[in-house]
Nucleic acid binder design. Sequence first.
DNA 1: GCTCAAGATCGACGGACATCGATGCAGCAT
DNA 2: ATGCTGCATCGATGTCCGTCGATCTTGAGC
Lengths: 119, 119
Amino acid sequence: MSVDLELTPKTKRPKGEPCCEPIVYPDVERADAIRMAQLAKALGDPIRLQLVDVLRKHAGKVCVCELVPLFDIAQPTLSHHLKKLRDAGIVDSERRGLWAYYYVVPEALAPLAGWLGDA
Amino acid sequence: MSVDLELTPKTKRPKGEPCCEPIVYPDVERADAIRMAQLAKALGDPIRLQLVDVLRKHAGKVCVCELVPLFDIAQPTLSHHLKKLRDAGIVDSERRGLWAYYYVVPEALAPLAGWLGDA
DNA sequence: GCTCAAGATCGACGGACATCGATGCAGCAT
DNA sequence: ATGCTGCATCGATGTCCGTCGATCTTGAGC
């Protein structure tokens, strides 16, 4: 036999109004949030953001040898950043002979842009 | 006396066309890139992105005690994420008694939204 | 005063990241 | 074949990040 042991009701609130309106919940699906966060993370480095900017403004495909002198970093570091952007699906590349050409994947940033758009 | 020693001209290129059009340079200022990257970095975590989403949709200020049960993380972790967003200038907080209320800083995301906007 | 609750801060841990030099690997030229 | 060139990859290093339990701080209620 056991007493109906009442646990702490956790309803102890200061007398005044409650802290806020009942309940709030996110209306961005978790999967969408993960995808958008992945895009944002890829843009979360000044060099990568400028890289995307250059590739966007320069409509066609841009050779890596053009990108290297634009930034004050070693070539392997630039290659690393380009790979990050590629892994995030923001840019893609194409090899022609010795050179590699990078370009922005159309609409890749659309989810994030759209979400940021509706202020 | 010394010979005008000619260093490697670095102009050795395959016969065909050059790798691409002359020169490309970023037209996003470095300072702007740093700022936007900072914003993007703060959004580069699914929980923080959902946090901003909740705060945005819920026009007023939202109590932390409402936010905690929405995510499957410990309270210190949530507090850490809120601090990250505050440091980035995306949200701000206000204490009332025991509770802390968070809200999105208007136009804080405008730079990034604007840049992403002009596709 | 004391006790409890909400939230921030601290300390630690494991994993990820940015950076670089060295190296690897194709492809062009001689 | 040999050498050079553009780019990717590897390994190492130092820093930052996400997470949590423990603790601190502030304020409300007794």
